[in-house]
Write a protein that binds this DNA or RNA. Structure first.
Length: 200
DNA sequence: TGGACGATTGACT
DNA sequence: GTCAATCGTCCAA
């Protein structure tokens, strides 16, 4: 296959790509320290989704989401937090997967130092992950194959391990079941008591 | 050019 | 449970 950096498995619809990212690892080498986390909760967004940044077309801000699978998209939330997305699909289609929850695998000391706290508070929310990985807007559009933050593919989880629910913190299309998470993992945020469709 | 809002978090009651 | 922090982006006029 073409030189896709090994991210061909993400060149599918974002609804298919999102659950495939569960269990994969993100590795940050920013600041000379390696921090590695395992993805346990994600949300899918694409160009046809009113809640997506790309719904109204490409802008300087969301340009990274149109670069195709294997790129990183970082945006600022509420002026304070940086949230990381894995861009999916082919170039020209604005789709990506927001990383909402992850569990530490390596470099926990650096994560604790950056976060100022430990436990599940290290990385059980999108802004927390951005801080733990030292992500910022300059990383938006970089490659997940050889950039400051890299993505390492892991085998897909079994269907029983994956929960599906509604997304969190949005006001448009808030009822679409596009949140995927690892059942029973402590680094999956509880949010505002979001019900989820396949709980139980 | 001005104004409203956001894919959030953390502190406080 | 409730609410402030904080600023770039986007839409309306």
């Amino acid at each position: 296959m073409a030189d896709d950096g090994g991210f061909g498995f993400l060149e599918v619809s974002v609804d298919d790509a999102a659950p495939r990212l569960l269990g994969c690892e993100l590795v940050s080498s920013i600041g000379g320290e390696e921090v590695r986390v395992r993805i346990v909760e994600v949300e899918a967004y694409d160009q046809f989704d009113p809640a997506s940044h790309t719904f109204r077309g490409e802008t300087p801000r969301n340009r990274a989401m149109f670069l195709g699978a294997g790129h990183l998209y970082v945006y600022r939330s509420h002026g304070i937090h940086f949230c990381c997305n894995v861009v999916t699909g082919e170039a020209g289609i604005g789709s990506g997967v927001l990383i909402r929850g992850a569990e530490p695998v390596h470099g926990i000391d650096a994560m604790i130092r950056r976060r100022g706290r430990g436990g599940a508070e290290l990385s059980n929310g999108p802004g927390k992950i951005g801080q733990a990985l030292a992500a910022d807007l300059s990383l938006s559009g970089t490659s997940l194959a050889d950039g400051p933050i890299r993505l390492i593919r892991r085998p897909a989880l079994s269907p029983e391990q994956v929960g599906i629910g509604v997304r969190v913190g949005i006001s448009k299309a808030a009822d679409l079941p596009r949140r995927f998470y690892v059942r029973g993992n402590p680094y999956v945020g509880r949010h505002h008591g979001a019900p989820g469709l396949s709980e139980g």
